[in-house]
Design a binder for these strands. Structure first.
Lengths: 137, 137
DNA sequence: TTGCGTGCAAAGGTTTTGCATGGCA
DNA sequence: TGCCATGCAAAACCTTTGCACGCAA
């Protein structure tokens, strides 16, 4: 399956390391580019997209679509699927992406599969709504 | 809140009527444009986007983001929030958008609110995964 | 040496915007 | 008549692609 990614390059390692060091956070391609630009390390936009695409295919990184016109967001999730036990909630008011740890998620996943035959890819799904902070103000 | 939409125009009525007549289905802006082009009714792209934006703001139409690079999808959902008792599931293999009626949805909604303080907007959320048909093949 | 990775620039696609014109009230 | 809506074209934006060069193995 992994025909791509034959070579281990410096940029590949640096991007992966950056994403790993910010586990739990998400970045757009442009933000990643800016991060390295800030360290005097220029990485071409195409390279960033190509590396991210590879990591998404491998499964170590997830991509989220938030709003029309916005960039996609990328987040390191690791090699093991065990860490996927949280909801991704996007607040429609303040725009934050919130990670909620919750066992209910797994129950719902099983329900969707057994009752509806739908094999839910929990990682890719984003729940839209209003977060606690915004709700109180 | 509704400063916009002061005038009722022919195009507005036609677009809304088309979306209403296809309730349960979703269309991209381009598909809507093509539909009217097929009836010798040309509607400018900008007009379609502007009308859709208005309807989304009003709440009678929902917008879904499916894949990067793809267009957003629009679907008529009506004025009442009662119809929102179903999941929107996008099959990552065949690309279909599936509507699943399910009470579990409301339970999850209550759970998210009471345990995590997150007021989930169920209509906007799309569950990604693999549908029953694709799973069996 | 072989062939993948990179960077740059250009292309591709969707959505938004500016501006003059047309239509609703 | 006063504004809003429309259409066209251009702009803005994110992402992908082509190609020559660089680098890993």
């Amino acid at each position: 399956m992994t025909e791509k990614g034959k070579y281990h390059t410096r940029h590949q390692a640096e991007i992966l390391q950056y994403l790993q060091s910010t586990r739990g956070m998400h970045h757009t391609a442009a933000q990643i580019k800016d991060h390295f630009a800030g360290e005097q390390k220029n990485i071409g936009t195409a390279t960033i997209y190509r590396q991210l695409e590879r990591m998404v295919e491998e499964g170590s990184v997830r991509r989220y679509l938030l709003e029309t016109g916005d960039s996609a967001c990328y987040e390191y999730v690791g090699e093991s699927p065990a860490c996927s036990n949280h909801f991704h909630c996007k607040c429609e008011q303040c725009g934050r992406l919130i990670h909620l740890d919750c066992d209910e998620l797994q129950e719902l996943q099983e329900h969707l599969l057994s009752h509806h035959g739908f094999q839910w890819n929990t990682g890719k799904t984003v729940f839209y709504g209003v977060c606690e902070q915004c709700r109180r103000t």
